[in-house]
Every structure is written in structure tokens, then in C-alpha cells.
Design a protein around this nucleic acid. Structure first.
Length: 888
RNA sequence: GGGCGGGUAGCUCAGUUGGGAGAGCAUCGGCCUUACAAGCCGAGGGUCACAGGUUCAAGUCCUGUUCCGCCUACCA
């Protein structure tokens, strides 16, 4: 017995902290851009918001990345996992503004410079929260390289990109309708709009003709915008309006004379076929306005309050104004009717306020030319999207891409590097503040106050984090990255834009693979959200079950193309797995007290050969599955191997030898196999459950350093014997089959587990008999027998329960104990089951077409199955007959 | 409006080129067997949403129906 006794249950808490610190201190996560020989593997983290806390999505996302990175490191790759956070312009500004509000001040009182200082202070105090949570998760990022999108280096990259795109005419500035959030006081990109269906109303308003009686009735969901109307449009083909008396209408409440224009955009089948035109507050109306040279009257201000252009409604909040307008129209009897109407309303994705389409001067990226190359790269498989189904979504969006509004009217972010000359209004775009105007040599230049969309800087992440625009060794070695692991919710926001920028500026795709994983939902499949109260906090899960159990669960759930429905029950189940591994180790270490580097293959037993063969198979399987991002399959294979092969069969089978006090070469050989299998198993498991495996590693004799530096098990290392042992597997299948058959009888006949049984085994097949004779000790041990005899002839003993496995019949002799009735029932049940199975197989074989058209291999297989079933049924039947005759 | 994914055991879900319906949890029965009761040994349980089609053969491919979820969209 060794002195390495360990605790009975695995306690994750202090273990996790201890080993994470150890890994960091030893710099085991560090990539080396100056190393030439090893293959490189790189991933950039999807940077979480610096304001964020870790949620289930992050947990899944980073667990998968960590599994890949740890796996590749073990295989000997030079791995870079680049970590960092993004500055989350609007979100962060909102958070800091809330803090200021609590202190009774606001950013306007502070002023821009002081406010930005306050954000940096906030960041240094709270910004590392999510990083620490990633560490709790075990994330093996190269933290020494941690980046932030507002770092000086990354800011330089942002400016460089902006300047270059501007001079390539891929960035322009202009007045357009944008999505405006009055609360955040900024424009948003189209993507940043959340559409929600609302129960609203459709208001029918009559606009009287300028000449004569009557008027045109228009329908709108936003009556307050009528104050900014500058025309009414009808379809030129609309017969209803062919002979209008008047060419103009009078805008009610404003008393403005407006033209009736004709535009094919108008849908004759909707509403009245007459459309009010508000060029300053609707994107379609804006286009129509351009076509007809209409005036743009902006009635809703950027603060959500009506402007002086709204006449007597000036100063009203936009929603109050809606009420006022309706009342005003009612008084003038111009409101024809109100219908309930469901329609989509855009909301700010950051603060959920209702957005207004608003006329505004903004900066845009011309997306089409950039998108084209990004489309081609996926078409040419320079970048693979996995699962493939997402490529279609990617193409759909890319094909219909629209210009990207990149300016934001907030303070926290990269200030746009454009300066306006006060003298001549010339715009100068440059990396650094220019000293004089390019056009007039004027020296008074004012920088643009807008900042850039956060996603603009995130789009550069794969190369800006590696030092671009400098030509760094890191870029040379690690770009393009091997894979991007991300959720589909930011496929457009981020992945598509990185593709565009990466290709444009690096001349190469940013990643070879994009692995798109599922979203984590609650048990009912709903998106987890704070407002619904269905959020499971990863940190509390880690507290309760340990990081390893949590990670194993996440990986097990990560089947491709499916959402993850998180359930604590499953986490609990995998905690049991971690504990099982722990206890298997505990048992092993009671017998192992040294390293066994060499296995004496002449001395090892059948079960030893079998478990080595199974270990080889699971090793291959895990490599295959991780190579194709099938995390759940890898987890299932490992789970089955550890629990149902290593623990249930192997450890149980070798117990008698281990408990035998006498030293022998045989025992030494088995111990060496046990040592090897345990060591290799924890190495295989380490990418998934890093903490417990590191802990075990250090308790296992003969290991050095960290498990992270271990040699990954592979077929080449132990070439002579390290392979599938088909003979051992097939023999073990016979042995295990016989044992299971006996156990089945014991269970079904309610025979106490402690009662030793006498068993007679019969088989026609010589090799089967030989195998059973040779390894009868295993059967006696695991099936709890007092004796076993093996013979060829079929001669049914008195008072026996029967089990048939393949070519073997097992008689459990139970003179005086057997419950004949029970045995008859048992056999009848078994025979009935076989009869059903046989029927479907026989049907197949009686089908001429099947015999003629199916591949010979398949026919052969079915025939064999039929034979086996027949034989089994016959034998059970004959035993039933005998037992019944005996009974009678 | 367009697109995508899903409906498989009581629950949560696997099931890769079409050829034996699986796992975990839950349930039932038996065990405190000297690693683990967070355990061991057994057992039961499914017309693979519905209707057609292709095929010798369909959970798997095709068509339609239905229910659920998501993404996307400038019809007032």
C-alpha cells in the first residue's frame, strides 16, 4: 500500500485557486512568437465588454476555446490565445453616467476631458471583473498580452484604418436618415436596432385639398411626424386619383400647403393609397424626398423633444406630442378613424428606448466593395464556417449589406481623426492632429467630436492585438488565426466585419475556421435575460459544483447546430463524473507507489491488453472529435471510457491481483498498465477538466511539472504495442458477455449479490470454450461464483436458470433455491422479445428485392443476425420446454 | 414578407455518407461487496410531430401540413 492516500471526495475550491496561480506563475499560457519549429495555433478571444460580468454565453464560448488551446498545447503546438476586452462605447458610457448621476452630477458638468478620465478610472477599478471571472473558468489565455480596444496601440490601428479607408473613398460623411436614440443621444447602425412587435394604432388623417372640397386621407402609425410632412404621394397608376381637382393639400395643424406628388414607391393596396411624406423622419420618405426635391423639416429633436419647426407643439415630448396631435385633429374633424395595428418598432439595443429615424450628419463605411472579398474568401474556402449551415446566413447578409454608420455622438471611444478648417471648412483626415489646413493653410482646425462605433475597433481585433500596423513577429507567426469561436448572435456585428477588415488590411483572412456555437438558453429554451429572471449565474454554478463539472457539462451540451438548454441537473451529473475520476485515482494510488515507465508486454494480462486497446481507441476518437469541433462526442467518449470501461470493468477485474500481497512480475505488469492508463486518461481529460487533472497529476508518482507540459498520448509513442488489440477486445467481449448473463439471472431472479453461484457454461465453439477456461478467474470474481465448469455438449442440468449469449449457453445452477415459476416467466419474456426481433429480420430475408439489390455485405450481416437470433431462441425454448416438463 | 433551426424514452438531449433506436437524469427491483451511496448490480420505458413520396431499406433524402424557437426586413 502506498502512502498516497487521498480524500474521499473531491473538493474543488482550494484546488482551483492553487493551480491557476501555479499556471500563471510558471507562465504556462505564454505563446512564443520567436519559436520556429513547432506548428502554431492561435485564437483571439471575442473580447467581452469591459463593463460586463460573465454570463453563460461567455462561459460556453471560453470553455470551448480553452479546450482547443489546452489540447493543442498538449499536442506540442505553439499556442497563442489572445485575450482582452472591448471598450463598449455606449454601454460603458451609460454605466459611468449612472455612477455620476448617483453622485449628483453628469457628464456635461464634468466636460468631455474630465468625463473620459472618469471612465478610465472606472475601468481601472471595475474593468478587470470579467477577466477574473474568466480565470475562475480556467481560461488559459496569454494574459501578458491582454489588450483593450482603447489602448494606445489599438487606437493607432483604428486611426490608421480610418485614414486609409477615407483616402480610398471607402469612408464618407453625409446627411442621411439614421437610427437615433434620444436617450443615448447618438446614432446607431442598422444592426444595433432591436425590432419588437408592438400593438399600436393606424391613424387615418384627412389632408384637405388646397383648392375645392374634400381631401386625401393618409394612414400613419406615427401621427406626430405629420408636422414634418412636406408632401403627399400617390402611385402614378392609381385610378382612384386620376382626376384630382387639386394639385396641393393643406397640412392640418400646420396650415402648410404641400404638393401631391406621384411616386411608384407607393403601394396602392395599402391603406388609402396615399402616403404622407416626412423626409426628415423616415428613410423611405427621405429617398422619395430626394427624388422630388422636397424640403426636409425636422420636427423631432435629437433630445426627443419637438423642435420649433413643430409650431405650437414645440417643446413637447414626442409621445405627448402624439396625443396632442390626435386631439388637435379630432377638434378639426380631420381624424377619420383609428384602427388597432401591429407593427415593428425599433429599439436601442443598449437602452431599449424607442428609436426615431432621424436626419443627421454622420460618417459611413462603404460596405459593398469590402464585402465582396469577404464573400469570396468563404466561397473559396479560405475561411470555413462550421457548422456549414451558417455560411448561407453569412452570404445572405453580405450580399445585401448596406453602408455602415460608424459615427456615434458619445464621448467614450475613438474620436474620429478628422479636422475641419474654421477658415475654409475643408476636412482634413490624418493620423495625428494636422498643423494646418491642406487647402488654405489655415491653422485653426477643429477635431470632429464624434467617436467611432465600438465594432469598428473590434473589426481590427485579430491584427490590431498583434501589433499592427507594425510588422511584428507575432503577426508573422500567428496571423491568420486558426479558428474563431463565437456565438451566431455576433456573426454580422463582428465576424463579417473582421473578415472585411482583415482581408483589406492584411491581405489575408483573419481566421481559417469560424466555429459557431449555440446560444445558452434556460431549461425552457428561452433566452436567458435579467428581466425574465431565468438567468443562471456561472459563478454560482462554479461555487456550487466546481469549475470542472461546469466545463464538462458545457462541452457535453455543445452539439452542433443546437441551442444549449442549461440545466443544473446535468451539471450535478457531471460533478459525479469528476468525483468518480477522483475516486478511481484514490483507489489506484492505494496500490501505485512509483512510476512505471515501462510495460512488460510479456507479463500483462488480458484485461490489461483490453484496457490499453480501449485507451488507444478513445485517444483516437478524442483527436478526431476535437479536430472537427464535435466537443459533445469527445466528452461522451471520455465519459464512457472512464466510467464504464476503466472503472466498471478494468478496476474491478484487477482487484484480486492488487489485493494479493505477494509480489509478482504479473502484478508489477498490471500496476504498470494501471499507472499508464491513469496518467494518459487524465492527460486526455485535461483540456476539459483542467483543475482536477492537474491535482491528480501532482499526486501521481513519477510525474513532473505541470500536466500542461505532459506528452499527449499518441500512436507513435509506443509503436510496437500501442494500438488496437482486436484479439483482446474480442476475448473480453466473450468474458463480459458471460458475466453480464449471469448477473442478469441474479438480478431478475432476485438472488442476493452475496450468494456465490455455481455455473455451467456450454458452447460448440472451441475458441470460446478456451477463452472462458483460460479466463475463468475473471468470471468467478466478477460474477461471484463458487465454481464454473465449461463443456461442449448441451445437456441441461436440473434446476437451473438459463442465459444465452452469442454461441454460449449459461446455466446458473440453483438446486433448491430456484423459483421455477419465476424462471419460466423470465424465459417466456426473453423468448417473446426474441420472436419480435426475429420477425423483422426474417421479413427482410424473405424479400427477394432485398436479397437482390442490397449490398452483399448488408445481406450477409442480416443473415448472420438471423442465425444468431434463431439459435438463441431455440436454445431458450428448449430450456423452457425442459423446465416445464421437469415441473410437470 | 423572407430565411434558418427544431418537434426522438417521463425530463434534457445525442444520433456525420440512408442498412442493428442511444446517453444522462428520473422511475422500479436488489445491494452499506475493503475507490466512490456523489456508489454498485439489474430492469422497465419510444408508431423518432402528422400525411404522402423516393428506395430492397427512411429518425436520416424529397414534398406538403402543423406546432415551437430564432434571425432578418424601409410597406405607411
Amino acid at each position: 500500500m502506498s502512502s498516497h492516500l487521498i480524500e474521499k471526495g473531491y473538493e474543488p475550491h482550494d484546488v482551483e485557486k492553487r493551480w491557476y496561480d501555479f499556471w500563471e506563475t510558471e507562465r504556462l499560457f505564454a505563446a512564443d512568437e520567436n519559436k520556429d519549429d513547432d506548428p502554431c495555433y492561435s485564437i483571439v478571444i471575442p473580447p467581452p465588454n469591459v463593463t460586463g460580468v460573465l454570463h453563460m454565453g461567455h462561459a460556453l464560448n471560453n470553455t470551448l476555446q480553452d479546450i482547443l488551446c489546452r489540447y493543442r498545447r498538449l499536442r506540442g503546438d505553439n499556442v497563442l490565445w489572445m485575450p482582452g476586452t472591448d471598450h463598449a462605447g455606449i454601454a460603458t458610457q451609460n454605466v459611468v453616467e449612472k455612477h455620476l448621476a448617483q453622485e449628483g452630477t453628469d457628464r456635461y458638468q464634468l466636460g468631455r476631458e474630465k468625463f473620459i478620465e472618469a471612465v478610465w478610472e472606472w475601468r481601472s477599478e471595475y474593468g478587470s471583473a470579467i477577466i477574473n471571472q474568466l480565470k475562475r473558468l480556467g481560461a488559459s489565455c496569454d494574459w501578458e498580452r491582454e489588450r483593450f480596444t482603447m489602448d494606445e496601440g489599438l487606437s493607432r490601428a483604428v486611426r490608421k484604418v480610418f485614414v486609409k479607408l477615407y483616402h480610398e473613398n471607402l469612408i464618407y460623411r453625409g446627411s442621411y436618415i439614421v437610427n437615433w436614440c434620444h436617450r443615448c443621444y447618438t446614432a446607431l447602425a442598422d444592426l444595433e436596432v432591436d425590432h419588437e412587435e408592438h400593438d399600436g394604432h393606424l391613424y387615418y388623417i384627412r389632408y384637405p385639398f388646397a383648392e375645392g372640397d374634400g381631401g386625401l386621407v393618409v394612414a400613419t402609425t406615427r401621427p406626430e411626424t405629420m408636422l414634418g410632412d412636406t408632401a403627399v404621394a400617390i402611385n402614378p397608376g392609381d385610378e382612384r386619383y386620376f382626376d384630382l381637382d387639386s394639385s396641393h393639400v393643406i397640412l392640418p395643424l400646420m396650415n402648410r400647403k404641400m404638393p401631391i406628388i406621384k411616386d411608384k414607391y407607393v403601394d396602392m393596396s395599402f391603406g388609402t393609397g396615399a402616403l404622407k411624406i416626412t423626409p426628415a423622419h423616415d428613410p423611405n420618405d427621405f429617398d422619395i424626398g430626394n427624388r422630388h426635391n422636397l424640403e426636409r423639416v425636422k420636427v423631432i429633436g435629437d433630445d426627443g423633444v419637438m423642435t420649433p419647426e413643430a409650431g405650437k407643439f414645440k417643446g413637447l415630448d414626442r409621445f405627448d406630442c402624439r396625443e396632442a396631435v390626435i386631439n388637435g385633429l379630432k377638434e378639426e374633424h380631420l381624424l377619420e378613424k383609428i384602427e388597432p395595428y401591429k407593427h415593428n418598432v425599433g429599439h436601442c439595443y443598449r437602452c431599449k428606448s424607442v428609436l426615431e429615424p432621424n436626419l443627421s450628419k454622420q460618417w459611413f463605411v462603404k460596405a459593398k466593395p469590402l464585402a465582396k472579398k469577404a464573400i469570396d474568401a468563404v466561397k473559396n474556402a479560405e475561411t470555413r464556417i462550421i457548422p456549414e449551415t451558417w455560411t448561407k446566413t453569412y452570404f445572405d447578409w453580405m450580399d445585401n449589406i448596406r453602408d455602415w454608420c460608424i459615427s456615434r455622438q458619445i464621448w467614450w471611444g475613438h474620436q474620429i481623426p478628422a479636422w475641419t478648417c474654421e477658415a475654409c471648412q475643408e476636412i482634413v483626415v490624418a493620423m495625428d492632429a494636422p498643423e494646418r489646413c491642406d487647402a488654405c493653410e489655415g491653422r485653426r482646425l477643429v477635431q470632429e467630436t464624434d467617436v467611432l462605433d465600438t465594432w469598428f475597433s473590434s473589426a481590427l481585433w485579430p491584427f490590431s492585438t498583434m501589433g499592427w500596423p507594425d510588422e511584428t513577429p507575432a503577426l508573422k507567426r500567428f496571423y491568420p488565426t486558426s479558428v474563431l469561436v463565437t456565438g451566431f448572435d455576433i456573426l454580422f456585428f463582428w465576424v463579417a466585419r473582421m473578415m472585411m477588415m482583415g482581408i483589406h488590411f492584411m491581405g489575408d483572412v483573419p481566421f481559417k475556421d469560424v466555429y459557431v456555437h449555440a446560444l445558452v438558453r434556460d431549461e425552457e429554451g428561452k433566452k436567458m435575460s435579467k428581466s425574465m429572471g431565468n438567468v443562471i449565474d456561472p459563478m454560482s454554478v462554479i461555487e456550487q459544483y466546481g469549475t470542472d463539472a461546469f466545463r464538462f457539462t458545457l462541452a457535453a451540451f455543445a452539439a452542433q447546430g443546437r441551442d444549449v438548454k442549461m440545466s443544473e441537473k446535468r451539471i450535478e451529473g457531471y460533478r459525479h463524473f469528476v468525483n468518480k475520476l477522483w475516486n478511481a485515482t484514490r483507489f489506484s494510488l492505494m496500490h501505485i507507489d512509483k512510476a512505471y515507465e515501462r510495460i512488460d508486454h510479456d507479463q500483462i494480462s488480458l484485461v490489461d491488453r483490453w484496457i490499453l486497446s480501449r485507451l488507444y481507441r478513445v485517444t483516437e476518437k478524442v483527436s478526431e472529435d476535437l479536430g472537427s469541433y464535435r466537443f459533445n462526442d469527445a466528452v461522451a467518449a471520455l465519459y464512457k471510457f472512464v466510467w464504464h470501461e476503466f472503472c466498471d470493468w478494468y478496476l474491478e477485474a484487477i482487484k484480486p491481483l492488487l489485493y494479493d500481497k505477494t509480489e509478482s512480475l504479473r502484478k508489477e505488469a498490471t500496476l504498470s498498465v494501471l499507472w499508464r492508463v491513469l496518467r494518459d486518461t487524465i492527460i486526455l481529460l485535461h483540456p476539459f477538466i483542467p483543475f482536477v487533472t492537474e491535482e491528480i497529476w501532482h499526486r501521481l508518482p513519477g510525474t513532473e511539472g505541470s500536466i500542461m507540459q505532459a506528452v499527449y498520448p499518441s500512436g507513435t509513442r509506443d509503436a510496437a504495442r500501442w494500438e488496437i488489440d482486436a484479439e483482446a477486445e474480442s476475448k473480453m467481449n466473450i468474458i463480459m458477455g458471460v458475466i453480464s448473463g449471469i448477473r442478469n439471472v441474479r438480478g431478475e431472479m432476485n438472488i442476493s449479490p452475496s450468494m456465490p453461484l455455481v455455473v455451467l457454461v456450454q458452447s460448440d465453439v472451441e475458441s470460446t470454450r478456451e477463452t472462458i477456461v483460460e479466463y475463468q478467474d475473471i468470471i468467478i470474481n466478477l460474477a461471484r461464483l463458487s465454481s464454473i465448469s465449461i463443456e461442449k455438449t448441451e445437456k441441461r442440468p436440473k434446476s437451473a436458470a438459463t442465459a444465452v449469449v452469442d454461441d454460449t449457453t449459461i446455466f446458473v445452477l440453483l438446486e433448491g433455491i430456484i423459483d421455477v415459476e419465476k424462471e419460466i416467466q423470465r424465459l417466456e419474456k426473453e423468448i417473446k422479445k426474441l420472436t419480435n426481433e426475429l420477425a423483422s429480420v426474417a421479413k427482410k430475408l424473405s424479400n427477394e428485392d432485398f436479397l437482390g439489390k442490397a449490398p452483399a455485405q448488408v445481406v450477409q450481416k442480416v443473415k448472420e443476425k438471423h442465425g444468431a437470433l434463431m439459435e438463441k431462441q431455440e436454445r431458450l425454448q428448449s430450456n423452457l420446454d425442459k423446465i416445464m416438463a421437469f415441473e410437470a
